[in-house]
Computed example of a mutant assay.
Amino acid sequence: MLGFLVKRLALALLVAVTVSVVGFVLLRASGDIAVAIAGEGATETDIQAVRQQYGFDRPLPVQYVEWLGKTLSGDLGRSVYFNVPVAQLIAERLPVTLLLGALSLVFALALSIPLGVVAALRPNSLLDHAALWLAVFGQAMPSFWFALLLILVLGVWGRLLPISGTGSLLNYVMPAIALGYYATPAIMRLTRAGMVEVLGSDYIRTARAKGLRTGKVLFKHALRNAVIPVVSLAAVQFGFMLSGSIVIESIFALPGVGQLAWISLQRSDFTVVQGIVLMLSVIYILLALLADLFNAWLDPRIRVA
């Protein structure tokens, strides 16, 4: 297990460095950052002053090394628009995004795994077709449209849930449903496919022949093996929810990282955008690493391989 962990950590570190280089280069390749920071009415003298102030006049490798050194020490730079450290901005808004992502993932798993299991137990039945139809409908429906529909039905007509703000957990119900429902179809289909394959295995037939209870065979033996690919997918979906929360946070007026990214893009605050991209990338990598370790714990064959 130690060797498996070391290999995964080395791979995660390599991916993190690669992502930081690509993000750093792409952000500067998108245009002249000095011009964006200086503003539309800035003179050439003002633009040159900005280049010197932020070090944009130096070679790109030198800029990257300096930026990486500051980043590793916890200094992500200073926001041009908000005039506060980027790390402070992200730290203030990250809890909202993490809570929204966690609730969205819980909703997606709570809905998709039971549907996938039930659909696998009754293949080609009416319930199976209904679950597959639900999956197709979920992937075809844009999350922003579903969010507006929830606001109209549950917020305006029914007055059951608050539409915006972060006053209580009730404020996160509609955003979590809107964000989590998009991930439900993929997880449900993968759970169904895994359960159908596992339920036809020899060891499941042996367990049933020994007289084990149906519930024990289903949850202890079948679901544990069928859920292994679901863990990896759930980790990826959680990262997607964090990075894809810009629209949902804007619709429901949630002061999270997604809303911060949208404001920073509008104000050409590239220092904040770069910090958010790096933070989300690191979270993605950590989630993938944790998913690999959890899968290795579930299935010893992965550690051996």
Results as ranks from 00 to 15, higher is better:
residue 31 G to T: 03
residue 32 D to F: 03
residue 33 I to T: 14
residue 34 A to H: 05
residue 34 A to R: 01
residue 36 A to R: 15
residue 37 I to L: 14
residue 38 A to W: 00
residue 38 A to Q: 06
residue 41 G to Y: 15
residue 42 A to D: 02
residue 43 T to A: 02
residue 44 E to P: 00
residue 47 I to P: 03
residue 47 I to N: 07
residue 49 A to K: 14
residue 50 V to T: 12
residue 51 R to L: 05
residue 53 Q to A: 15
residue 54 Y to K: 02
residue 56 F to E: 00
residue 57 D to K: 10
residue 58 R to H: 07
residue 58 R to M: 05
residue 59 P to D: 04
residue 61 P to M: 09
residue 61 P to Q: 10
residue 62 V to R: 12
residue 64 Y to R: 08
residue 67 W to E: 09
residue 67 W to T: 01
residue 67 W to Y: 13
residue 69 G to D: 03
residue 71 T to Q: 13
residue 72 L to W: 05
residue 72 L to D: 02
residue 74 G to T: 02
residue 75 D to R: 13
residue 76 L to Q: 09
residue 76 L to N: 05
residue 77 G to W: 06
residue 77 G to N: 10
residue 78 R to N: 13
residue 79 S to C: 09
residue 80 V to E: 11
residue 83 N to P: 00
residue 84 V to K: 15
residue 85 P to H: 04
residue 85 P to F: 05
residue 85 P to V: 05
residue 85 P to S: 04
residue 88 Q to I: 05
residue 88 Q to D: 12
residue 90 I to M: 07
residue 93 R to F: 01
residue 94 L to V: 03
residue 98 L to Q: 05
residue 99 L to Q: 15
residue 100 L to H: 08
residue 100 L to G: 09
residue 101 G to T: 06
residue 102 A to H: 03
residue 103 L to Q: 06
residue 103 L to A: 10
residue 103 L to R: 09
residue 105 L to Y: 06
residue 105 L to Q: 14
residue 106 V to E: 02
residue 108 A to W: 03
residue 110 A to G: 14
residue 110 A to K: 00
residue 113 I to E: 12
residue 113 I to Y: 08
residue 114 P to S: 08
residue 114 P to L: 04
residue 114 P to K: 14
residue 115 L to V: 08
residue 115 L to M: 15
residue 116 G to L: 06
residue 117 V to C: 04
residue 118 V to M: 14
residue 124 N to Y: 13
residue 124 N to H: 13
residue 124 N to G: 00
residue 127 L to W: 15
residue 128 D to E: 12
